[in-house]
């Protein structure tokens, strides 16, 4: 599903080069729920940006759902983001003056679905997150947990191959955080592939696979639920 090999991402300012990612290797298979942890500045945000095709990389190879990312132009990247990736951000990133329906509608527009199809997907997605009755609400009328569920619905509506979640519960209290996590777990058991960046060790422990990023590299593959053999991945790549 997602396959990164020897990825490097270097930020250059006038005098300093910072290796945000260095020889970064990761393979994620379909149906996995991966938690990415690591201290601040370790490069996990950069990883998420690169993985989500929001940022480019300097070296290495990246394959997403069988498509080699190398050399794709911006249009092709946009298309991939739209079709294959669902984003869930820490601060939800909903458009404040769009109602829930329009917020979820937005990415579907770019896919070129007709109105009926969009409506079907939006309704489904809202049902999935339990907010079907509030399609006309504005984000500000919802609690933080509900807003994050809307963001998840937005991500789901496009039926992506992979969900990328960036500290999805970072701004939520523990009750709401639990609800969101439960939703993600449900989605995972229903077949969604999820990569989640988090700093909460409990959350990390609760998911299928745990990856730690330190200093731009994956240093630890603690597999709590034995789903894959990491050595075989290295050979495969």
């Amino acid at each position: 599903m997602l396959n990164m090999k020897n990825i490097s991402r270097i930020y250059r300012s006038d005098t300093i080069q910072t290796h945000a990612l260095r020889d970064f290797n990761l393979q994620v298979n379909a149906g996995e729920f991966v938690a990415v942890t690591g201290p601040s500045g370790s490069g996990k945000s950069t990883f998420l940006n690169v993985a989500g095709l929001l940022d480019s990389f300097d070296q290495g190879a990246y394959e997403l759902d069988g498509v080699n990312i190398q050399g794709l132009n911006d249009d092709e990247l946009s298309r991939l983001r739209n079709e294959k990736i669902g984003f869930i951000f820490q601060n939800y990133n909903l458009i404040p003056d769009f109602n829930l329906f329009d917020n979820i509608d937005m990415p579907l527009r770019y896919r070129g679905f007709n109105a009926a199809e969009r409506k079907r997907r939006i309704t489904n997605a809202l049902e999935q997150v339990g907010l079907a009755s509030r399609a006309n609400y504005l984000p500000s009328q919802l609690s933080g947990g509900q807003q994050q569920r809307v963001a998840i619905a937005r991500a789901l509506a496009g039926e992506p191959k992979i969900l990328l979640a960036d500290e999805p519960t970072g701004n939520l209290d523990s009750l709401m955080a639990r609800q969101v996590m439960e939703l993600l777990h449900t989605l995972n058991t229903e077949g969604s592939t999820i990569i989640m960046v988090t700093h909460d060790p409990d959350q990390a422990r609760a998911v299928g696979r745990n990856v730690q990023v330190i200093d731009g590299q994956i240093t630890d593959h603690s597999v709590y639920a034995p789903t894959h053999d990491n050595a075989s991945i290295a050979v495969k790549v």
Binding site: R81, I95, M106, P107, Y110, R154
Partner: peptide, 16 residues
């Protein structure tokens, strides 16, 4: 630019 960035993140091309 937040909104624009969001649109781009969910798959809007520069063209869009």
């Amino acid at each position: 630019r937040f909104e624009t960035g969001l649109r781009r993140a969910v798959g809007a091309r520069m063209k869009d």
